[in-house]
């Protein structure tokens, strides 16, 4: 039984790194605006499908990926301006339902544009996989893990070293006080949505060579990313990443050691346990928003 462990852990880390990227998007928007953006998974779907379409026109992969990330960032910005912003100040539940609606619209549009067929993306750097501790790590998995770690490092530097990062943090800490010092929470909200959409798109593009890309892939990704964000406590970016890896590992280990059908069930069970134990933390977050 122990012989399986290295492979299961490596696979768990790969899947987890994708969940981590999606969870980061959740946390970013939540801390700044107090909204759970349930269209987060759709950003990943759009990123993967747009990238696949651009690749079909023989664009180089790096260019296609960058263009797809940029396009989805624009979609994220548009979502904030046209869908979320007009309802600002409404009950948080209203805003959450609005993001749900947006996710359905994106899924519907994707179904019309790309159809129901799954699309395949080539691996970024094809080649033989790496052998680590008796487990196999595909090159695309390496990309996924590397990118998620890299993005977290970049975000950390951004939050601690730049004025924009500081402004975002200020807005997350206290929107009223940051307005007093001249930071526009509205602009920060727009910025958070744009950045989250870009992160989501990146996650979608990286996972597509492993899992394929379909119009309905966003739902599962978004849900797992949400669970990861909540397990991480919703407060900080590094915690969201830890949450992402935790969900990935739980899923793979249950599939490997128990039966595959239980993977999701156990993940949500862990979510419930965390919510019971961490109830205060979540409530505190909500109260802070209301203030």
């Amino acid at each position: 039984m122990l012989a399986l462990l290295p492979q299961l852990v490596l696979t768990g880390l790969t899947v987890g790194s994708i969940y981590a990227l999606v969870a980061l998007g959740f946390v970013l928007i939540y801390t700044v605006t107090g909204i759970f953006n349930f269209a987060q998974g759709e950003f990943s779907m759009l990123g993967a499908l747009i990238c696949a379409t651009l690749l079909a026109t023989h664009a180089p992969l790096a260019l296609a990926a960058l263009a797809a990330v940029a396009a989805v960032a624009a979609v994220g910005a548009a979502t904030e301006r046209l869908v979320v912003q007009p309802a600002f100040g409404g009950h948080p539940l209203t805003l959450i339902i609005i993001t749900f609606g947006a996710s359905m619209v994106y899924r519907g549009i994707a179904l019309m544009v790309w159809g129901a067929d799954p699309y395949a993306l080539p691996e970024f750097t094809p080649g033989p996989p790496l052998i680590l501790f008796g487990g196999v790590l595909g090159r695309q998995a390496l990309w996924a893990i590397g990118l998620s770690v890299g993005v977290v490092a970049a975000l950390f530097a951004f939050f601690t070293r730049t004025v924009w990062g500081a402004a975002l943090r200020a807005c997350a800490d206290n929107a009223f006080a940051s307005r007093l010092v001249g930071i526009s929470p509205r602009r920060m909200s727009l910025f958070a949505f744009t950045l989250s959409a870009a992160l989501g798109a990146l996650a979608g593009i990286v996972i597509a060579p492993i899992s394929g890309a379909t119009y309905d892939m966003g739902l599962a990704l978004g849900l797992k990313g949400f669970v990861a964000a909540v397990i991480g406590g919703l407060g900080s970016a590094p915690a969201a990443v830890v949450g992402g890896y935790a969900v990935g590992l739980i899923e793979t280990l249950t599939t490997g050691y128990l039966t595959p059908g239980y993977g999701d069930a156990i993940t949500f069970l862990v979510l419930l346990v965390v919510l019971f134990l961490q109830r205060e933390g979540l409530l505190r977050g909500a109260r802070r928003r209301a203030a």
Binding site: V15, T252, G256
Partner: peptide, 8 residues
């Protein structure tokens, strides 16, 4: 979307 665990 990933069957590595089963294959392992």
């Amino acid at each position: 979307t990933d069957l590595t665990a089963q294959v392992t």
